[in-house]
Write a protein that binds this DNA or RNA. Structure first.
Lengths: 135, 135
DNA sequence: CCCATACATTGACGGACGTCAATAGAACGC
DNA sequence: GCGTTCTATTGACGTCCGTCAATGTATGGG
């Protein structure tokens, strides 16, 4: 007998949820990790957000686009620098856009991508050090 | 013919490297993602670092330990709140410690864990917004 | 000594995901 | 219309990894 009335907010980890598997956009879901105890649901959402940027290809895409001349890059100019196939690049761009880290604008035959700094700031904020309470 | 002498720093993504698979501690490896273009190696290292915290169990462990009374927690007090088996908790603590995000101190039969805020700051810094150059 | 407790390691299983080739879809020029 | 170009989707494959049961290792009490 471990817990009869589980005192821990959302500690169920064994039960697979089998959710619709939609790529939810990143949004501020929790206070900083070091500042308050995360419930399982909050942790899952934050972890999913970090998973989006926890990939070399996607990090490089972000940096390539963020450092472009006009702040935007045509998808056609990303395949070669990334050293991956066109479908793979398209896939990663889709993941980043789905998470809200990129904005997509279709102009003629081309798709132009821009970084959305605010969404990255959300991730950054989640890693903020807590203010030293009293002093 | 796309590239004869690859002009992109470390774009090889197809070739599996099959490295020793050691868990390298997190350390400042690159300038912020939005500030300069990441080479493949830098991106791989940063991605590996983010992967460490891109997991609900590990995020909860960090928050549980960071918010403990004395800034440290006995491993025995982490199994129940996490809602996972003891070996699983031990595994995650090992990953976090290996990455340098946690410090471990063995006292008698118990293992006490503390957060290393500096290492988390490294990750946070990687997401920093670039200074608006000129004004 | 022997047993109980705390933690780590091993091995196995199943799901998640990064990758590519092939194909489909959309937009443009002629 | 028709071919060309750019992008997205589909399907398949292999690897990575989070999880647990079982076992191993160490520490301490009686």
């Amino acid at each position: 007998m471990i817990t009869s009335a589980d005192p821990y907010a959302g500690s169920t980890a064994g039960g697979r949820a089998l959710e619709p598997k939609t790529t939810k956009p990143i949004e501020a879901c929790c206070s900083p990790v070091l500042e308050s105890t995360l419930a399982e649901a909050e942790a899952a959402e934050l972890a999913a957000a970090f998973k989006v940027i926890a990939d070399p290809a996607r990090l490089r895409l972000l940096s390539l686009i963020a450092n472009a001349a006009d702040g935007e890059v045509c998808a056609c100019d990303l395949v070669a620098p990334l050293g991956r196939s066109q479908p793979t690049v398209s896939h990663h761009l889709s993941v980043l856009t789905g998470a809200g880290l990129l904005e997509r604008e279709k102009r003629g035959r081309w798709a132009w991508y821009r970084v959305v700094p605010d969404r990255i700031e959300v991730l950054r904020a989640a890693l903020a050090a807590p203010v030293p309470a009293a002093r």
